[in-house]
């Protein structure tokens, strides 16, 4: 475990806690894409299949449980909780996320490190996570006023994978035979998708103005 990866995991944890805080305390999911939340729940469900078979460390297991628990409870809140549902913008959250799931599944069946069920599912989760933010970014473009918590959520979610890229660079230079092209390329694509959001988020923060994305 290196500082970049720990910082990445903590940033990821913060993004999830910011979202849970928003939904649980003010009972609002304004500006949040249910599609992205469902995709993330699927990402964690297919990535952590080994949670009961391979014990890496207490930290690893606890974090997996937190990510699984939070992503599924966020989906539950947005689908079932009467009060939260009222603030869900279903007219604008219309990204057909099936268009993301199927190509990722096909790609995972074609390009993977080993052709086993767990490995293909894990690879699918890597590809899916790279594009899972798209419905959320599309929704942000459509909703004019982006509230602070939503902006912070997306910012931390994007920042965590860029910290992971630093972690992969560090591990590449410090650990022999540490090469994972699939994860590296997907992680890079994932981070690049946030590039314009980062630009507008940081410039809105610098100019101390409300975050708005161009239509």
């Amino acid at each position: 475990m290196n500082a970049f990866r720990l910082a990445g995991d903590m940033t990821h944890l913060i993004s999830v806690l910011v979202l849970l805080l928003k939904i649980h305390t003010i009972k609002s999911c304004a500006g949040i894409s249910l599609k992205t939340q469902e995709l993330y729940a699927l990402v964690f469900a297919t990535r952590y299949l080994d949670i009961f078979t391979d014990f890496i460390s207490l930290y690893n297991t606890v974090m997996k449980l937190i990510f699984l628990g939070s992503s599924f409870s966020i989906v539950w809140y947005m689908r079932r909780h009467k009060l939260v549902q009222r603030s869900y913008d279903k007219d604008h959250d219309t990204f057909r996320h099936q268009l993301l799931v199927l190509p990722c599944l096909i790609l995972a069946l074609l390009i993977h490190e080993q052709f086993t069920f767990k490995e293909v599912m894990w690879t699918f989760s890597i590809y899916l996570e790279a594009v899972a933010i798209l419905p959320q970014l599309v929704l942000l473009q459509r909703t004019r006023n982006i509230d602070n918590l939503t902006g912070q959520y997306v910012f931390f979610l994007g920042a965590y994978r860029s910290l992971y890229i630093l972690n992969w660079i560090y591990r590449y230079f410090t650990e022999p035979h540490y090469v994972h092209w699939i994860t590296w390329i997907s992680g890079l694509v994932q981070t690049l998708l946030y590039a314009d959001f980062f630009y507008y988020y940081i410039s809105s923060w610098k100019n101390n103005v409300k975050l708005t994305l161009p239509a």
């Binding site: 990866r5 995991d9 990821h12 990535r47 080994d50 391979d54 890496i56 690893n60 974090m63 997996k64 990510f67 490190e113 080993q114 490995e119 894990w122 992971y164 972690n167 035979h177 994860t183």
Partner: peptide
Amino acid sequence: LAPESVKDEL
């Protein structure tokens, strides 16, 4: 050391 295929990252 965990074998190569085991994923130690989240």
